[in-house]
Computed example of a mutant assay.
Amino acid sequence: MSKKIYGLIGRNIAYSFSQKYFEQKFQKLFLKECQYHIFDIEEISEVDRVFQREGLAGFNVTIPYKVQIMDYLDLVNEEAEAVGAVNTVALKRDKRIGYNTDVFGFSRTLDVHLKPSHKSAVILGDGGAAKAVRYVLEQRNIPYLVVSRGGDFRFEDLTKEEVAMHSLIIQCTPVGTFPKVDDCLDFPFEGLSDKHLVVDLVYNPEQTAFMKKSIKQNAKMVNGFFMLEQQAEKSWQIWNDE
């Protein structure tokens, strides 16, 4: 039986859980022909080498290539086009097709944790994951404020009063990810309360410095692991749909 290669492309992604997750999945399903590789690339142009791998069936995409990868695809599905970012690529009928399963993963996270009192949001960051978060919030008619280093509203502009006004906070940057676990965004944590839901999309470590400081303010805290599981399962479904 010919081998099937899946994987993850990104930069400095040795910490990723994806390889272990999918290797365990292959074992459970007795899929001896399937392999999952980490493709740690310095520049997006190196993805051409990945596409040449014999048996390549698809791969996930993470920081910092979720937008740049779109230039290397033949097709981008409607949802990923609307988001403006791709995190899953499938090779089907000699076509490179891009999807966004972050949308599914974040939407499922909100299904579990969102309450009617969470009426507006602050999104921290403006990368690929933040684009998916924005798309989901727009679908649910939840207004949001985007805070980023280079945007119209910057981190230094964010006050505790502004934070207090928005009961949903989504941390979409990689700050605090292993191995830099002590790093933390400059954020007015004193604006948080027990009325806040804070979602940090980082999943390694299980509790980032940002999460720990949020918990001290009695905010309800969710990390990115559930979202990651959900988007991984959606990726698997996409790769195996005919």
Rank of each mutant, 00 (worst) to 15 (best):
C172L: 12
F104K: 10
N12L: 11
M1F: 09
L145Q: 08
L29I: 04
K180S: 12
R154N: 11
Q207M: 12
M221G: 01
I9Q: 06
V86K: 05
I69G: 00
T173H: 07
Q35C: 12
K3P: 00
A85L: 04
Q217D: 00
P174H: 09
Y6G: 05
K25F: 12
R93A: 14
D48Q: 15
S214G: 14
E54H: 12
S214W: 01
D102G: 08
E156H: 12
F59L: 14
G10A: 13
P64D: 02
I38D: 02
I170H: 03
D152S: 13
A130V: 11
V146P: 03
V112Q: 14
I142D: 04
G151P: 07
N87T: 10
E190I: 01
E162A: 13
G55D: 03
W236N: 10
D194S: 10
F153W: 04
L31D: 02
I5H: 12
E156Y: 07
V89Y: 05
V47Q: 06
S45R: 14
V103P: 13
L192D: 01
G105Y: 04
M165N: 14
G150A: 12
F30W: 11
E42F: 02
T173S: 09
I9G: 02
S45T: 14
H166K: 15
R108A: 15
T177G: 04
D200C: 08
Q207G: 00
P143D: 12
S214F: 04
D74E: 09
I97Q: 08
W239T: 02
I63E: 02
D183V: 01
E138V: 00
K3E: 12
V47W: 07
K119C: 09
P174E: 04
F153I: 15
V103F: 10
K213I: 00
S235E: 01
Y99Q: 01
I69S: 07
V83S: 06
K195S: 11
